[in-house]
Each structure stands twice: as structure tokens, then as C-alpha cells.
Design a protein around this nucleic acid. Sequence first.
DNA 1: GGCATATAGTTAGTTATGCAACTAAATCAA
DNA 2: TTGATTTAGTTGCATAACTAACTATATGCC
Lengths: 149, 149
Amino acid sequence: MPNNHFKRGELYSVINGMASTAVARRLQKNFRNAGLEITIEQWSILYHLWKEDCLSQQELCNRTFRDKPSITRLIDNLEKQLMVKRMPSKTDRRINMVCLTDAAKQIQNLTIDLANQTMSEALEGVKKEDIEIVKIVFQKVYDNLTISI
Amino acid sequence: MPNNHFKRGELYSVINGMASTAVARRLQKNFRNAGLEITIEQWSILYHLWKEDCLSQQELCNRTFRDKPSITRLIDNLEKQLMVKRMPSKTDRRINMVCLTDAAKQIQNLTIDLANQTMSEALEGVKKEDIEIVKIVFQKVYDNLTISI
DNA sequence: GGCATATAGTTAGTTATGCAACTAAATCAA
DNA sequence: TTGATTTAGTTGCATAACTAACTATATGCC
């Protein structure tokens, strides 16, 4: 049985490429079974904030490949659930910095473990080299489509 | 420059695995630019009906990996746009057969050309063998996650 | 035949996405 | 300094997704 455990940095790009497919739904289900009232979309925002806290909404757009209205509303919902807080930037009053709350920090390890488990389950029997190829292909596709706007 | 033209049967599974990513958005944009008022989700239903006309909603669920309410509403919208028609099955009154209208048949070639073009653009510089690997990995992931319910 | 169960599809409620149009603040140029 | 343009974020509208609860028909067992 191959070892498909991912380092954290590697994990997100794989899930992201399969967004809204079986993997995402399974991860969502595993969150719910663990008593977590959080969607994978919300989780993907938290994931980037755990890597680097207090990002602007625009920066979250860039890192998650979403448009601005999507981020606005995801942050609205995360704020309602007290997972993040909007802090006005001191140097540029147009900018909201999105920062984690303690509640969000507390679920970090649990959710990342669940994500790792889900990925292992999903990728059972898939060779590590093949996963590398999938990631490279996705990156190439994104590059092809975003350069030529 | 590698030849990334796909046979029709191969094409869908690639797009499907990248659903709701850059490829899907680009294809959507190309539909709009060509004057087609159709979403990629609706197109994915038509795609299966072009392969085999008059499928039950349940069969469309299976083939598109969607749940039943999603299909109900996609068919609702496609029926409003006069692209498909629900025909009650003669042998089982629970079943709706979903059949193409002439309007849908008329856009088949145009939309499939646009999809082929979009895929070529997206996959420029990606090796054919690597695309095969992506497809195999996706299939394995789906199998891993759907067998163990 | 009659009741339990399974299957096909719909409806309601919540979240998410895309687009277009908007406000407010910052920047740049005359 | 003022006026045009750019940038950050929000709002409104339509489509789509998932879950849970529902209706209607079919099937299977006694």
C-alpha cells in the first residue's frame, strides 16, 4: 500500500484541482461527521490564513483563484461564524485585512488531519509520480488560461 | 507544438475533472462570445444526450456525477430554454425521459468545436501521456471514494 | 390482495459562483 | 489642486450545488 501522506503545502493544490468533485464532497462529509460546521470553501480560505495570517481580500482572491464577490461573501459567512475578523488597514483605507480568530486557530490541526486522511483515502493506489504529474498539468493549464486574457 | 486535439469521447472526462476551474470558466466565456446563452453545466447535460438521447434523470445523475435535485433544476432550466423536453416513460410512470429538441441538436457541433478549441488552448504544452495519467488518476479517485460509502 | 420497502423525482433552505454595476479611497497627470 | 483613472471591496441578480424532507410509483414478500 503506497504512502500517500502529503506535506501540508502540497495538499491544498491537489484538493484545489479537484474542487467540487468527489474529494471535496467527501472532505465536507468528514468535517460534518467530526462536528465541524464548516464548508470546504470556507476551509480553503482558512487554509491560506493558517499559512499566512491577515491577508487582504484581494490577496485571498489571487491565492484561491476566486473573484472578489465570492471572497466578500465567504468572508461574510466566516465572520458570522466568528472564524475571521475584518481589520481595516492602517495604511490604505480601502483595504480589509482578514485575520483569524482563536476559534479558527483551534480547529486548524483537526481539519488538516481530516484533509490528510481524506486525501490518503482518495489517492489510495495512485502512484506518487502520477500525483506529481497531475499537479504539473494543472499548473500548466492555469498558466495557459490566465496569461492570455 | 504538440497535437492536443481530442476525440469527443475523451474530451468530456477531462473537462469534468476540472469542473468549476479555469477551463470551465473559459469555456463558458467562449460560449457567450459565440452568442450561446448556455452554461457549462447545462452543456454537460446536453453532451451526454448527444451521445445517447432520451436518458432518465437518474441516468443523467450517474453519468454526470450529480445528485438528483441538481439534475431536476438543470433540466428545469434547459426545458425553459427549449433545449430538452421531459417525456414520461411508458413502462414506468415514475421515470422522466429527457430528450433533445431540434434547438439543442443545432448547437451540438458548434459547442463541441468550442470545447475542443478551449481544451487545446488549456492543454498547450502538456504531453499526451500526462493527460492520460490525469484521467487515470481521476478515475481511481472517483472509484476510491464512491465504492466505500 | 395488502403492507413494507425501494426507486424516481420534486421542493425548500443554505451556501457558493459568475457577471455587471456600484461606492469609496488612492494615484497619477495636467 | 483638481479631475481622470485605477484599485479594493460591496451589492443585486441568476445559476448551480448539497442536504433533508417530501410525493408518487413500483416491487417484493406474506
